[in-house]
Amino acid sequence: MNDKNKIITGLIIFIVIITFPFWYNMGKASPVPEPKLTDKAKAAKECVEPKEYMKVEHMQILDIWRDSVVREADRVYINEKGKKFNMSLSTGDDSCMGCHSNKADFCDKCHDYASVRPYCWDCHIEPPKEKK
């Protein structure tokens, strides 16, 4: 009876909470990130697997690669087409980051957007850029 005000206050708080995403983003532009390819990556045309596959499965490939390298000392990856690749994230020119050397513009763009923080770089370091 006399709790009407309390209940309505609670209801308003609830509505504010559940509509939080609507007003949190108000007036903010949130462009969809476009990962940039380096010239080297562009020239190579294709990654170890097709782009669509890489987009959704790259984390699993890296996970499998890690186990293969660390546990079985096997550094050779053969893709669908039978082409051989060196399994390495960040060492040398024929590693993932040898081609995709622009971590901030390539890896981080989508990861930040989707709030994914891979623990790759807990151990690996981004290969230092050559000074020009």
Binding site: F20, P21, Y24, N25, K28, S30, M59, Q60, L62, D63, D112, Y113, A114, S115, V116, R117, P118, Y119
Partner: peptide, 27 residues
């Protein structure tokens, strides 16, 4: 909420970190 908020607040990132504490598999 990580899909609905941009930029993603730090507390959400913290929650995800705790939730994926065991680092099993990828993702």
């Amino acid at each position: 909420l990580r899909f609905f908020l941009e930029p993603v607040p730090v507390c959400l990132q913290l929650l995800e970190k705790v939730d994926s504490f065991f680092q099993l598999g990828l993702p």
